[in-house]
Amino acid sequence: MQFFLEVLIGGLLSGVLYALVALGFVLIFKASGVFNFAQGAMVFFAALTFVGFTEVLPGWTGLEEGGGVVFWLAFVLALVSMVVLGIATEKIVLRPLVNQPPITLFMATIGLSYLVEGIAQGIWGANVRGLELGIEDVPIEYMLEHHNILISSFDLFAAALAGVLVGSLALFFQYTKVGRALRAVADDHQAALSIGIPLQHIWAIVWGVAGFVALVAGLIWGARNGVQFALTFTALKALPVLILGGFTSVPGAIVGGLIIGASEKLAEVYVGPFVGGGIESWFPYVLALLFLLVRPEGLFGERHIDRV
């Protein structure tokens, strides 16, 4: 039972990290109906840009290497870079494709992902970098000593951060003018335009916010596994989360993440040994496909009804 709990809790905490990446997809899909295949590349770009700035800033400014000022300055500069990337994407890639079929927009984001990956490595190089956020990835001693359950303090921190981020986004969508405009755009582009909501302005904001989410996800995943090209693979973890939680729901991303995280870990431990192991990569997709049969719009997604 103890081991089961350990696997379950570890899975739930990993699930929150998947949700963090899934959030970026949800934001853009919600506002523009675009499935942004480049979200994984954006996570990589954000983390690499952040680490790149932490490397060059001490040389440029004379600030202490590894100090708090460099960290926050690099964070702000990386955030600005992400917002610029988001706005440029909207203006250069998506705006010319307004009113094109969704598949065209999807294909454009596939191209975008290659471009973003190439630009990131072109600017900052292909070297693999370490990233320390100052929170050690070690077990919480109290839990280990008193309950013999292993829970990572870093995973707990990441889960709390994701929780704060989701809460903030939910409040932003619910109570701010921009948030309401975003929801209106998500609901119906043309109706939103007809009442004077500037569609392109809203899209730019959404891409900027998605860039911010990508930066946070990139820092968390980068601190876990290093800042390297493999960060783009985090998007693969987010896809089944989206199918399960729904492409348009922020809370859905969290719940979907928790379900996927917990189920894949339990499956790996309890089912894996019977089928040769290594099932973590495909099990979430099988689960998501089965779920699609029952509820195609996901747990929290909007039911799509066409009048014929």
Binding site: N225, S281, W282
Partner: peptide, 21 residues
């Protein structure tokens, strides 16, 4: 004991819990 890690291997929580056991 052989324990597989699925590609790319950026998530190994369950494998290491098995190793702990």
């Amino acid at each position: 004991e052989k324990i597989a890690v699925a590609h790319p291997g950026n998530e190994q929580q369950s494998q290491w819990l098995q190793i702990r056991q």
